[in-house]
Amino acid sequence: MRYVFVAGALALGSLPGLASAQDSITVASTTSTEQSGLFGHILPVFKDKTGIEVRVIAQGTGQALDTGRRGDVDVVFVHAKAAEEEFVKEGSGIGRKEVMYNDFVIVGPGEDPAGIKGGNDAVAALKKISAAKAVFASRGDDSGTHKAELALWEKAGINPSGEWYRELGTGMGPTLNTSSQMLAYTLTDRATWLSFDNKGALEVVVEGDSKLFNQYGVILVNPGKHSHVKAKQGRAFIDWLVSKDGQNAIAEYKINGQQLFFPNAAETQ
């Protein structure tokens, strides 16, 4: 499922005082950064600082990286480190930088048919879900969250299949909606969960496992492969994200007093 978030009045770029088309970039990012409301918070701050408009195409991480490979965007901002490093290694992107992190959680129905509530071992929880054949909703969309989920199943030594395992092929918000309707377990990033209003009977049942760590990185699409990439403006966005101002803007974004993303550029560069 594809979402497009447009920051600012893009159609009015020719009016006085607004950025020209040359002073805009397109970023392919994850559904979690869009659906959590992070971009709605930080992009106006960036534009006020630089005059550069940012158009965001929100996709699963795998799709976002493929969009970058085609040269259809200037920057990718995603959360699947191994795939990001491969993107750079193959020459599709340059200069990957880590920006922020949060974590994944397993959510499920309060009645907890698999008996995993209160646990902090994600692999053990998946083993119990599989043994109980409790309904599990997978994004199934090659997103960063889907990649993280598959890695956990691999650690559990399980190839999930059958009627209990539902591959939806949807973004995080729609997957949570479906999970709420089906009373299914699912893996979600915490930011989207905190910003999700239709929780129904779902609640966090497993959290706090180091294997649920969720790192985000940003990469400039290689202008050597795609000459139309706006490298100067793209680098300005990347540099701002990892600067003190950008990191502060990320840290300041909260829902109901809870911080959704934790900047760590200074710790990782």
Rank of each mutant, 00 (worst) to 15 (best):
K133S: 06
S29P: 01
V107F: 08
N159M: 05
G173M: 00
S179K: 09
W153K: 02
I25Y: 00
Q35C: 07
A191R: 02
M182W: 10
S227N: 12
I255E: 11
F261V: 11
N248A: 14
V45I: 09
D74S: 09
F39T: 06
I57W: 04
I158R: 02
A82M: 10
A80D: 15
A19I: 01
A132D: 08
A82H: 10
V107P: 09
I94A: 07
Q259D: 10
N222K: 02
K244T: 15
A184R: 01
G234P: 06
W164G: 09
P263I: 01
L10V: 10
Y185A: 10
Y165H: 15
L126W: 03
A28Y: 01
I129D: 11
T175H: 00
E154H: 00
R55A: 14
G13Y: 13
A151H: 01
N222Q: 07
D197Q: 14
S138G: 08
S24R: 06
K47G: 07
G51L: 08
H226L: 05
L241S: 06
E86C: 05
N256H: 12
R139N: 12
N222G: 13
G224W: 03
A9E: 15
V4L: 08
E149V: 00
L150V: 02
L10W: 09
V75I: 12
V6H: 02
S20K: 02
G51W: 05
Y216Q: 14
T145P: 01
L65N: 12
G119F: 08
R166C: 00
A7L: 00
T175V: 03
G217S: 15
F5R: 08
E84S: 15
F262H: 13
P263K: 07
G115P: 09
